[in-house]
Structures are given as C-alpha cells and as structure tokens.
C-alpha cells in the first residue's frame, strides 16, 4: 500500500492546525511587542564601559569638555 502524503485525517484537522499556527504566530508577535515596549520604557541606560555618565572623582576634569 502506497503511503500517501495527504491522509483524510490531515484534511479534517486542517482547521485545527491552521488555527493553532495562527495562535502561535500571534503569541510571538505579542512577546516581541511587549519586549519592545518594556525596553523602550526603561529610557536611557548607562553601561559601565561608556565614558558618558561615568563618575568623575572630585578634582578630576571632565574629558568630554
């Protein structure tokens, strides 16, 4: 018996598979969107290897000026 690529089962489950697929795509979009919004709401951030915003010791001259 030949193995057919499409069984009746695949057809009858198509709506489920498409539905679950769309839900997953939507979920990815939501996680991505939430990440963008959350990161943007942090505002400007400092990291330690940048000079700007670094701490100057008393008496030191600001190298950017």
């Amino acid at each position: 018996m030949a193995i057919r690529t499409e069984h009746a089962l695949h057809r009858s489950r198509r709506s489920r598979n498409v539905g679950v697929g769309l839900v997953l795509v939507g979920f990815i979009a939501i996680i991505f969107g939430l990440t963008v919004v959350k990161v943007e709401s942090l505002g400007e951030t400092d990291s330690f290897d940048q000079i700007r915003g670094g701490v100057l010791l008393p008496g030191e001259e600001d190298p950017l000026k």
Partner: peptide
C-alpha cells in the same frame, strides 16, 4: 478512517 468526528478549532 471511520472516526466519527474530528474536533475543529471552533
């Protein structure tokens, strides 16, 4: 093939 009903997404 004789499964009576396949639940749909709805």
């Amino acid at each position: 093939a004789d499964r009576p009903y396949e639940a749909q997404f709805g």
